[in-house]
Nucleic acid binder design. Structure first.
Lengths: 334, 334
DNA sequence: TTTTAGCACTCTTTACTATTGTTTGCTAAC
DNA sequence: GTTAGCAAACAATAGTAAAGAGTGCTAAAA
């Protein structure tokens, strides 16, 4: 357990480092941090904090830099909600209040807003459909060999997909299928569109398997591939001093370019709403040198998409988390 | 007009520079370029090519680098179609033959393929819908205050959008609207969904304007916002030596982050199929230090999307163009 | 016992210099 | 018209010295 002054020193170092990106010297803390003691005393505290693993040094005679343990302690114990300015509040409100027809657009707008306000890069992923409840399925014939399937879920999510057939299909056939699918699926979670449905339909349907098969295949495909990743403000990261290192910049672009990593990163949160991963805490090797804060957008416990902020370990956690909390509150009001 | 040997020298310099990214010395050209003369002779030729603006020097005693005029001459006059390897042909074929249900997916796959084969960053944009002919419009009621509109065009493009109402809507109303819209729009280009339609519908429809208005508004919005940009292989560019310059890297990320620039870039081609923009030839200031090759995917003169390769001015134009030509042929076969 | 001033020591950063190597342009010979 | 040879220009590299920032330790002060 850290005593009061050590906490203050740690907090001061973390915040100073977040602001300046330069190793923090004992001298720098004697002013403007409410620490009423000399640099020598602070040096002693720093030495001990380092011994306990909260701080790192880049070389023997350099200032201190927070270690991952230091950041973690800061996030868990020392974080105070940052005030959001009036302009920011106005900006956020106006953005979130734009009328959207599709939930995924709302997630994108939210990602966009968070990125704009925090000045970090944001990514988002669409809702996980699997456990949403099917409210309605509609099949629409387009021409004679193409159909669109539209699934409406309890959270208002609309998922549509196109299905092509190898033979002509009649309006009658579409209607029968529509009836049967609805009959079987209405009120069921989307993931039901897997095994059991298939057997049932093959048994019941009297006409060509050529018609039902592509429908089932495509629907199965669609419910699995909910990896609709959206990226916002990649360039913002490039203004940060850590991106002067080509290696960092390259790794970053590589991460954003690898959808699997981004999807993994967004889907791997335990907490209900906000998750913070600092450096090595990330499950993805590629992210070991970055920090990630994710925010799950939910309504009635149902996933409506997840937004993630990715930046240097020296991230302004306080700002990011405050903004997310505020946005969460705003979204709940809608 | 350049004499034969000058052409050879220019071509050799361009190709050598494309390969090595290092200024090309007179010595480097004496071997392996079919130039049967000494370095001194080549130096004379180089001096003259420079005087005529085809070559640049980075400093008094450096090798030569092609100028933009040099690249342009190379692209226009000296380009020879590069062979595509058997593996590449196989790869391209297998990628393009994957069954897709939506045209935009095909464009994405094509962009992806070009990026993989050329090792450059690719972007793509969906089809311009405006001049496509409406074949069918279907309205589907989802719940009581939401509707999906599906537009099918003559090129097989399916465009769908969700429309929300402020009051309950009946199936009957949907059907009436569907009939009227089809009546007015079938066989017309999509852009018809603007002024004239509106007047007609307001006149004819007997029931609430609250129902028709959102439909028209949303449809108008959809046909205008066909800026569905897709990015592939951003990280590939970062392996190129020019991206060791932080400024270049940053500019590049900025470009890819600015959808308007990318959209502009993809939409600004005069030629029927393949357009090449070298450095300053780009209409967008941000692209002055890059080269862009775009490829329009068309069927029966109708736009199905455009794919662009963006890379350094020292781009392997020959490879890129050859691959695009081959893919174009392949696409036509489908 | 805790805090602080003072100072030696460590290490980075910057500027400067010398050296090496590459490539050109020019001249004169072929 | 072509080429060999050579001086000059310049980049790149390595090495050195000086300056600056910051720590850790010691001993004195509180």
């Amino acid at each position: 357990m850290l005593d009061d002054r050590k906490k203050k020193v740690l907090q001061a170092i973390v915040e100073e480092y977040i602001n300046t990106a330069e190793p923090v010297s004992s001298n720098a803390l004697t002013t403007n941090h409410g620490l009423d003691c000399s640099s020598a005393t602070i040096r002693n505290e720093m030495a001990e904090l380092e011994k306990n693993g909260y701080l790192d040094k880049t070389h023997t005679s350099s200032g201190r830099v927070p270690s991952e343990k230091g950041y973690r302690y800061y996030v868990d114990e020392l974080l105070n909600d940052k005030d959001i300015s009036l302009e920011e509040i106005k900006y956020i409100s106006s953005k979130l209040e734009t009328k959207v027809n599709e939930i995924e657009d709302l997630t994108k707008i939210t990602a966009n807003t968070i990125s704009e306000v925090t000045h970090y890069t944001a990514v988002s992923i669409g809702p996980k459909t699997a456990n949403q409840i099917i409210e309605d399925i509609k099949f629409v014939l387009l021409g004679s060999r193409m159909m669109m399937a539209v699934i409406l879920t309890d959270t208002g999510l609309v998922k549509e997909t196109i299905i092509k057939f190898d033979e002509d299909v009649t309006q009658k056939q579409i209607e029968t299928m529509n009836y049967m699918f609805n009959n079987k699926l209405k009120g069921q979670p989307i993931e039901t569109i897997d095994r059991p449905l298939e057997d049932y339909l093959y048994d019941e349907m009297t006409y060509s398997v050529n018609v039902i098969k592509p429908v089932i295949e495509q629907l199965k495909k669609v419910i699995k591939e909910d990896e609709n990743i959206y990226l916002e403000g990649a360039n913002k990261s490039f203004d940060l001093p850590e991106f002067n290192s080509l290696e960092v910049a390259k790794n970053f672009v590589n991460i954003l370019d690898t959808k699997e990593v981004v999807a993994d990163m967004l889907n791997s949160g335990f907490a209900e709403d906000i998750n913070v991963y600092i450096g090595d805490e990330n499950k993805q090797d590629e992210l070991k040198d970055f920090s990630v804060v994710t925010f799950k957008h939910k309504v009635n416990g149902k996933d409506l998409g997840t937004i993630g902020i990715i930046g240097p370990k020296r991230m302004d956690y306080s700002k990011v988390i405050s903004v997310m909390k505020y946005i969460n509150k705003k979204l709940k009001e809608l």
